[in-house]
Design a protein around this nucleic acid. Structure first.
Length: 861
RNA sequence: GCCCGAGUGGCGGAACGGCAGACGCGACGGACUCAAAAUCCGUUGUCCGAAAGGGCGUGUGGGUUCGAGUCCCACCUCGGGCACCA
């Protein structure tokens, strides 16, 4: 269009590198790559095998976190990581690697379903259309994906294996003796042989079928249990702990979430807590992501200690058993089961009232309220096992039922919270450590040696390291010791010897709530017999396809209606829920499970399916998995060589996927212990967003700037920087950039903006810098009038030759380290030099083109 | 409060402990044009100076070193994560 409407220019520079010419070149090569199958990657075995093509090549598995196919399509912020992995993959292919690089879609889940509910269109239809649109957009960027390996989690051929893996997990238990998952049949063998005792010691054969099923359910890695779960009436489903924000709302939709006891599917991820923490050491991940995972798992070493009381032993968890001599009262969570038995008659009314008020407060309110301590005395006392002291038992909502044992021993002299509580309620604060003089000086207290232990003068608890005092009994003497580790060890030994405590490890991690009362997800491959026992469907009945229905809307409730109950959409489909099957003992009636799996299920193993996407016999061929993901030497856990994605999945996806991978490893299906060996978190593309006085975002492209002041329709607005997107009304569509400059320029710009792991603001006006580079590069080689290679190129001189070789060295190093921004700078330097020279000497043209090929693949072709 | 990470021109950002500011944007000057856009050439940290040249410069204050943006200590600011977890 441009060239025909401006005849003068097109006559002069018919083959100048313009947006129009760039598009011509790009579309042509994208077509050619498809026709030639240029990016099809050979496997060592199976349907995609081409063993000869692997000879002499090192393998490399480069993976992007696969996207959710949203209806809004891509903006220029989305593909930053994709472009990075593409440049890297192309570079690695050019340097002798067999690179596995493809892209799939994480397409089950709430957004598609909510969109479907809004529009009345079935989610299968919108999902399919969105995937097609996204594939088109990604292809337009020139990404070198192997198209044969692309999957969607919603393909029955894919979720057949998601269901199969679920069955494996259901039919497995964690053997703590060998720290490994095993098939449940091996547990049955142990019970039958008597090598493992049943919970109540009776012979296995004497247990009824229902009792046996109960025992096994208590071991399964996927199990149904009645437990406090997160009920979200606004979404109409329960959600996992990981999907609840710190202010007690749903990650999706931002609705209130309530703790309710319900019967739901759980996954025993807690069995893997230690390995999930310990194996982080084997991974090439950033310290911050590792810290987030460690934090979430929350492993803390300590001891469980029993305090005798009229209601029986009260067990507390403490990380500081060494401070037991300073435990001068106890605090139980208001929901603690012993509270009723401990409450003395004259305290019944106050305790009941306190529990009632605490019960109405959601977890949110308990946290949002300032940290002022509240609590009431039960009227009972318990016995401190190390010194026999009678300590009062209180209840208070700063102790959480969900952590540890829901009861604590309070050591007010050494714990900030206990200190505040003691001050609040005027409880004694016995000292068990002698704080150093400096501690008093820093707090402006003139403490004599004699009255240092008078805690009434202390402004706060002493949490440091100092010699113990008043810490001895007949068999244990910590006085004078200043080594915490040794004091803990000696206390633990004493507790164990006297049967009133044991060293133990406590975790914050809870089991994973795995069922959802929604429609758009993987159905559970589970049926229930007439006694209500769960059975997995045999493999030949998989996939259990999601039944087609127009009635896919979930039953949602008033967002604050905590007492509502979930209703699965699948439950309405009587024709589907009741079924007659022969599971090996003749045809019988069964009822299907009507839950679906959470969004995260499909993303727990997708990288494995990329390896062997068409395999009908197994989820992945063993030799193929070994080739692409097997451990590489001693101490190497195996896994994807490079996994690129945003930091927002630090806990959820990355934790769940590691868990599933470890179960499959334990059961002997995989050679790799970990799914993702190296994780690289790319930054985000930020864009200016503008808010008016009502704090509402306005269209960022209609804002005017004047002397640093921003206005929208004449009214002042304030600028902030945020992740580019629809909600901030600042998204730039890639098509605009293609039209003006082409995809190669967009790729260059995104890679040149800064290091890949840093977030950076998008500036459309800056894009032209990379366009000029590409234009000069073109002009240095191609005649702008004819489009043919130039014949008037200069001879190679020594200076240019030296610069070339410096550039080759630098670009290779930078590309290898994924420092694409500095690689580009070096290429521009060389090209600027060539421009001054009057063109690119023929002798080095090929090398210049090869160096730019990963970045600007179409132009370089 | 605790745990990560980062502070360099007007802006995005470069710098194995060795010429700070590569490369790009913008700005300014010039060429081309009737003119503009595009394109091309040049200048551009800052202060003094006509120039040659010189002073000052990597959040702040100390330190190590022949030499520090880079290493060490203390602090300030910003971003992210966790947060009454016993």
């Amino acid at each position: 269009m441009n060239s025909s409407s401006e005849p003068t220019q097109s006559d002069q520079h018919r083959k100048r590198y313009t947006g129009t010419l760039a598009q011509e070149i790009e579309l042509r090569w994208q077509e050619q790559w498809d026709v030639d199958g240029t990016f099809e990657t050979p496997n060592p075995a199976g349907p995609l095998a081409d063993p000869e093509a692997l000879v002499g090549k090192q393998k490399l598995f480069v993976l992007d976190m696969f996207p959710y196919p949203s209806g809004a399509g891509l903006h220029v912020g989305h593909p930053l990581g994709f472009i990075g992995t593409d440049v890297y993959s192309r570079f690695k292919r050019m340097t002798g690697h067999n690179v596995l690089y493809t892209m799939g879609f994480d397409a089950f889940g709430l957004p598609a379903e909510q969109y479907a509910v809004q529009t009345g269109t079935h989610p299968a239809i919108t999902t399919e259309a969105n995937i097609a649109n996204m594939r088109r957009q990604l292809r337009r960027l020139g990404l070198s994906h192997d198209p044969r390996r692309s999957i969607s989690t919603t393909d029955p051929g894919y979720y057949r294996w998601t269901q199969w893996i679920f069955s494996q997990i259901f039919n497995a238990w964690y053997d703590t003796d060998i720290a490994k998952a095993r098939p449940i049949a091996e547990l049955v063998e142990q019970f039958e042989a008597g090598t493992r005792a049943t919970p109540d010691g009776r012979a296995w054969a004497s247990l009824s079928a229902a009792e046996q099923a109960d025992v096994l359910d208590g071991h399964r890695l996927a199990y149904i249990s009645e437990a406090p779960v997160n009920w979200c009436p606004g979404l109409g489903t329960v959600v996992a702990n990981e999907e609840v924000t710190s202010d007690g709302r749903s990650d999706r939709g931002n609705f209130p979430v309530f703790k309710r006891s319900m019967r739901q599917w759980m996954m025993r991820i807690t069995a893997y807590a230690d390995r999930l923490v310990d194996d982080l050491d084997l991974l090439d991940w950033s310290d911050s992501i590792k810290a987030m995972q460690r934090n979430w798992i929350g492993r803390s070493e300590g001891a469980k200690v029993d305090f005798a009381s009229s209601a029986g032993p009260i067990t507390v968890f403490t990380t500081r058993p060494d401070t037991l001599f300073g435990a001068s009262f106890m605090v139980l969570a208001p929901e603690h089961p012993l509270v009723d038995a401990l409450t003395a008659p004259e305290h019944t009314a106050t305790v009941a009232e306190y529990r009632r008020v605490a019960g109405t407060k959601s977890d949110v309110a308990r946290q949002v309220d300032d940290k002022t301590k509240t609590g009431v005395f039960t009227g009972s006392y318990a016995t401190n096992p190390v010194n026999g002291a009678q300590v009062p038992v209180w209840i208070a909502d700063y102790v959480l039922m969900g952590y540890g044992t829901g009861a604590i021993m309070a050591v007010p002299c050494g714990d900030e919270r206990d200190f505040e509580f003691a001050r609040q309620f005027d409880l004694p604060i016995p000292a068990i450590q002698q704080p150093p003089a400096a501690w008093f000086e820093q707090r402006g207290i003139d403490a004599q040696v004699g009255d240092a232990l008078d805690t009434s003068a202390w402004p706060e608890a002493f949490t440091g390291d100092a010699p113990y005092v008043n810490s001895s009994n007949d068999g244990l003497d910590l006085n004078g010791l200043a080594n915490i580790a040794e004091a803990k060890q000696r206390t633990n030994a004493w507790l164990e010897a006297h049967g009133c405590g044991t060293a133990t490890i406590n975790y914050k991690l809870r089991d994973w709530l795995f069922s959802r009362q929604r429609y758009w997800g993987e159905p559970f491959p589970i049926v229930y017999d007439e006694h209500g026992n769960a059975h997995t469907l045999p493999d030949h009945l998989l996939p259990l396809e999601l039944p087609p229905t127009d009635s896919f809307s979930p039953r949602t409730f008033d967002a604050d209606d905590a007492m509502s109950n979930p209703e699965s959409p699948l439950d309405r489909l009587d024709w589907w829920t009741t079924v007659e099957l022969d599971l090996g003992d003749g045809p019988k009636p069964y009822r299907r499970d009507t839950n679906v799996m959470p969004q995260w299920a499909g993303s727990c193993w997708y990288e494995l399916r990329y390896l062997d996407p068409t395999n009908d016999e197994r989820f992945v061929d063993a030799a193929v998995e070994q080739y692409w993901m097997g451990p590489q030497g001693e101490g190497h856990p195996g896994g994807v060589d490079l996994y690129v994605g945003g930091v927002e999945h630090a806990v959820l996806h990355l934790l769940y996927a590691r868990f599933w991978h470890k179960v499959l490893f334990d059961l002997g299906y995989l050679s790799s212990k970990e799914p993702y060996h190296r994780l690289f978190n790319q930054g985000y593309i930020l864009a200016a967003a503008f808010k008016d006085e009502r704090e509402i975002y306005v269209d960022a492209f209609s804002v005017d700037e004047h002397d640093g002041q921003f206005t929208y329709e004449g009214k002042p607005v304030t600028r902030e920087w945020g992740k580019m997107g629809k909600s901030l009304k600042n998204a730039v569509a890639p098509d605009e950039i293609y039209e003006a400059y082409g995809a190669d320029t967009l790729r260059l710009y995104e890679m040149a903006m800064g290091p890949l792991d840093a977030s950076r603001p998008w500036e459309t006006r800056d894009v032209v810098g990379m366009y000029r580079f590409v234009q000069r590069l073109w002009r240095n080689l191609v005649d702008e009038e004819t489009g043919a290679l130039r014949t008037d190129l200069p001879e190679l001189d020594d200076e240019t030759d030296r610069l070339l070789h410096r550039t080759i060295d630098g670009v290779r190093t930078d590309m290898d380290a994924m420092r694409f921004n500095t690689a580009i700078a070096k290429l521009i330097e060389l090209n600027n030099h060539l421009t001054k020279l009057g063109g690119c000497p023929t002798a080095i043209a090929e090398r210049l083109v090869l160096m730019t090929a990963p970045l600007t693949p179409h132009l370089s072709e």
